[in-house]
Write a protein that binds this DNA or RNA. Structure first.
Lengths: 92, 92
DNA sequence: ACCTCACATCAAAAATTTTTGATATAATTA
DNA sequence: TAATTATATCAAAAATTTTTGATGTGAGGT
């Protein structure tokens, strides 16, 4: 399968799981620590970690380390890139 | 799982498969008959049908019947809705 | 140094999606 | 009307994704 397509698909894959959309919704309210996300979602710790990795790799979410904690937030830059890609892919 | 999120996920699910992105790429060149798509892609007839259904249900692609043939094209309207949704979901 | 906490990674199980081949349907042509 | 063509649907197999529980890692705290 075409590599470019695989790479593009990755961005949208981040957006097509209900748990990940729920995470984005929480992050819209501002930066959150993994432990806070964990208690708001119906996910195990390893499950949250799995989803956060996908979101971060897509560029839509960015993370920041502070001592023991990891804080996640929406990336404006990632958003812009995703929007551009979406437009590019779907504009006749 | 939250129903609204499920519904939103549907639009992006359409975009997270390489075969479907390849289909969108072909449709960017203009409306195409299923039979034309079929010969350009590495898909069986039933497989193409499966993917076209997902793309149409997402609103990003629209179809038109002409006798025996089905023609598919990108929907500007669907695109705009998807872009708006993406912005909404990812804007802090 | 040892213990605990926050999170990441791993491998196996469970769930979901995609592919495949067979069959159905609807429009067209002979 | 029978045969053919284009596409849809179905069910089972194959592939991929997600969940789960166990274990690893690195930063503090004691």
């Amino acid at each position: 399968m075409n590599n470019e397509l695989q790479k593009n698909a990755k961005v949208f894959k981040a957006l097509c799981d209900p748990n990940r959309l729920a995470i984005l919704e929480l992050l819209r309210g501002g930066e959150k620590c993994a432990c806070v996300l964990l208690e708001q979602l119906d996910l195990k710790q390893s499950g949250l970690s799995y989803h956060m990795k996908i979101l971060c790799e897509s560029g839509i979410v960015a993370s920041r380390q502070d001592g023991k904690w990891t804080y996640y937030h929406l990336s404006l830059d990632g958003r812009d890139k995703a929007v551009e890609l979406l437009k590019q892919l779907t504009t006749p």
